[in-house]
């Protein structure tokens, strides 16, 4: 399934990928923090929306992502 950037708070339309905590091929559990996002005034840990295997990381550290944009694929 598509792993999209969720809403991080009111008025935040986009954020920078600060740090991936997992690599492609890692097994992840729903609710585990997998990515750290950076805004002007804070960072946020984004948890996995479902359990599965992290596939196809589409955006790298330092890149800017919009809320709702696909950032990775989570497979079986």
């Amino acid at each position: 399934m598509d792993f999209v950037l969720p809403e991080l708070g009111k008025g935040i339309d986009e954020a920078t990928i600060s740090f991936w905590m997992c690599e492609e091929g890692d097994k992840i559990n729903k609710g585990d923090d997998v990515i750290e996002m950076l805004t002007d005034k804070a960072t946020f840990n984004v948890p996995a929306p479902v359990s599965g295997v992290l596939k196809d990381i589409l955006v790298r550290e330092g890149e800017v992502v919009k809320v709702g944009q696909k950032i990775a694929e989570i497979g079986e």
Binding site: G9, K10, T43
Partner: peptide
């Protein structure tokens, strides 16, 4: 090397349903 904030400047993602209620 891209910028990272210190670890203590981390926030939890809020409950957006409640946020929207206030905003509305």
């Amino acid at each position: 090397m891209h910028r990272r904030l210190p670890v203590w400047l981390k926030k939890k993602i809020p409950d957006m349903k409640q946020v929207e209620e206030t905003r509305d």
